[in-house]
Design a binder for these strands. Sequence first.
RNA 1: GGAGGGGUGGCCGAGUGGUUGAAGGCGCACGCUUGGAAAGCGUGUAUGCGGGUAACCGUAUCGAGGGUUCGAAUCCCUCUCCCUCCGCCA
Length: 429
Amino acid sequence: MHDIRRIREDGARFDTAMKRRGIEPISATILEADRLWRQGTTELQSLQQRRNEASKQIGLLKRDGQDASALIDEVADIKTRMQDIEEQGRLLEARLDEMLAGLPNYLGENVPDGAGEDENQEIRRVGTPPNFVFTPRDHVAIGEGLGLMDFAGGAKLSGARFVVLKGMLSRLERGLANFMLDYQTKEFGYTEISPPAMVHEHALYGTGQLPKFHDQQFQTTDGFWLIPTAEVPLTNLFAGEILDQADLPVRLTAYTQCFRSEAGAAGRDTKGMIRMHQFGKVEMVSIADPEHSEAEHQRMTGCAEDILTRLGLAFRTVLLCSGDTGFSAHKTYDIEVWLPGQDGGAGRYREISSCSNCGEFQARRMKARFRREGAKKNAFLHTLNGSGLAVGRTLIAVLENYQQEDGSVLIPRALRPYMDDLERISPAA
RNA sequence: GGAGGGGUGGCCGAGUGGUUGAAGGCGCACGCUUGGAAAGCGUGUAUGCGGGUAACCGUAUCGAGGGUUCGAAUCCCUCUCCCUCCGCCA
């Protein structure tokens, strides 16, 4: 949500900022509605003032047993006049809210301009993609070869974009989630949370999925929404709260199932389990003050990268360009893991984590504030979120990177404690 | 699902139609006191919006929305959340 005052100060600057998001100039429309609204508000307030004065006098007159009918008539007249202005004001305010709530966050200054993911800026590459003496297969071939990845079963139960994992592959998924949670909590000081996976509408509004992206979400018949990411419950935990600056940053992590309709993604990633309607993800959320959110963002990205390093997976980190940065984000780093089985064995980097600093954009929507030490006024918090990591895609990465020519898959050393020290998953005899 | 009770400022908590934006307490800030600290004493301390260079003025806000009334934290309706008991249930 944008601060209307900032737009009033410099509408042209706002338009320039939004233009980077591909949005046509809108400040004039907003400011005109704002002007009308303020005009109405001022008029309404002077009427209210007169009404309040008259009411007090009426009270006094009546107490003294005098006639107050003239004033009562005046108030009745004022009320009639107020009705129209109030109605107008409500409409204008709703229109303003609608416009403001539908506009994306400001982009960070160092966010590169660009139309889409091709123009993201690579920050660093870490690790070395493995060499294969054979043509590496993709995770579908590997998983089905192991007899432990069942897309037909997923389709039977739920249709496309669902999968059933079995045996040690199911175990691998659980092991990965536990490994990540242990790492985030023990190494990086995140507090583990077990949040609801269904939330009210206002929570999705708070983090910015609503109102604009309602078609990306699943809604139950009685009005709940399935979370598309644990970012939603974790961040909204602070809605309406006022924190002490001394308690910052707050770092939370959660492993949850995530649900996405993937509307508009028809035809993309239809094969395999890269893009599912339901997937597990360990999410990190940090709540920081404005002075420290940038450092916290770097730290958070590092926490996600560290998981990959520990798993021995090669990755690259990219700074998303303007066209690829999400609605609520001020600045986003994507971490892309090397998947050697993609593109017929040529290999390819694919997103496995997305770490965003949302600045005060979400905090403003959900009224999450903090008491600044030494200052009188409360200020909006900065909210950050990042995957640490997407479990399903990590499972894919492990399969494709650790596959052996005989169809078996080695278990990364860091994961073996979570797999009863199993070294290898082999096809069922 | 049935019955009942609640939602008041950063927190706790009074307040059932008329200068109540709201007693009191806690917390916090500043000052006095002290060798220093604690205690004690004093003063101050909600937020949004509009107007104003500013001091400040106005207005709204007691879960949300609507209504009754000259006037609503107080009365009525709807919604929402929390709690208790019963029922059902992982």
